[in-house]
Write a protein that binds this DNA or RNA. Structure first.
Length: 280
DNA sequence: ATGTCATTTTGTAAATGA
């Protein structure tokens, strides 16, 4: 099963990139963020092309800002359109999370509040929202939380840590929220796959940041023991950040070993070693 | 110092947000 997450920075603007990307990468489950569409507008533009490609859809949008979606062609059940006990911002619950059961996993597409600057009301809201996210996890073992978390887990996930001292995305309180999720049993599976590589998932549109690879790794796939133990590949799809009309984020793709029926299949014994040579 | 992009508007340039 191939799972992907992508902050598209307006699904409508990204339509000419999104549909070809689905055809090329053929993900089974897709978490989208920043669709910036109402549910009605998303349905108008996406229901037909997604159905044609075999996807069921759960979209939670408000129109101008935010907006998240789950696309799945391995089932989409028990949809939850907001985190339980999610904090409001200025009395409005924003469209930042949608959860469904897809292919036996409880998947949540998240768009964590940006926070703007420490001290800003948006920053306190971000931390409250992250607490609600952790509290929303029912069964960590089968959970996947994927999306734009607006937090760089370590200084290795920022192109120039010195520039970001005391900025949002890197503060101990924000990173502590990721630690809380980790302590629940959720693994940052792309980092686990590439523990000492430096790579990013977001690059500012300005100042030629992408072409100088000056970015941040803020789009994560956090997976519980069951999916984390089945990771076959995990990578950032940088190609989608190139060319005409890209999002400022690249998709993150994770492949899980599974047979079509959801059974991982027989355990294959290791090859025999009749000549007694040492294995490397 | 801050080079882009997307969205909205008693709109057509300016504000807002990231």
């Amino acid at each position: 099963m191939r799972l992907a997450t992508w902050n598209v920075n307006s699904a409508l603007s990204r339509l000419p990139r999104l549909l070809p990307w689905l055809d090329e990468r053929a993900p089974d489950v897709v978490c989208l963020q920043e669709t910036k569409l109402s549910d009605e507008a998303f349905a108008e533009h996406f229901d037909a092309p997604l159905k044609e490609r075999g996807y069921e859809v759960a979209h939670v949008g408000e129109g101008r800002w935010n907006g998240v979606a789950l696309l799945s062609r391995v089932g989409l059940e028990d949809v939850r359109r907001a985190l339980p006990a999610v904090p409001a911002f200025q009395e409005a619950v924003e469209a930042r999370a949608v959860t469904a059961t897809c292919g036996g996993l409880r998947v949540t597409s998240v768009y964590v509040p940006n926070g703007r600057t420490p001290g800003d009301p948006h920053y306190a809201y971000k931390l409250e929202w992250l607490a609600a996210l952790a509290a929303s996890v029912d069964d960590p073992a089968t959970t996947v939380i994927a999306g734009d978390v607006n937090i760089a887990p370590t200084d290795d996930d920022v192109w120039d840590p010195a520039l970001f001292v005391d900025s949002t995305h890197v503060t101990p309180a924000e990173r502590g929220a990721l630690t809380t999720l980790r302590d629940l049993g959720l693994h940052d599976v792309v980092r686990d796959r590439w523990p000492s590589e430096r790579f990013f998932s977001y690059w500012d549109y300005r100042a030629g940041r992408f072409h100088q690879d000056q970015g941040m790794r803020i789009d994560l796939v956090l997976a519980g023991a069951d999916p984390a133990g089945r990771v076959a590949a995990a990578w950032v799809d940088r190609l989608a950040r190139k060319g005409t009309g890209p999002s400022d984020h690249a998709p993150v793709i994770v492949d899980l070993d599974t047979a079509p029926d959801g059974d991982i299949g027989p355990v294959v014994p290791p090859p025999s070693n009749p000549k007694g040579r040492k294995r490397r």
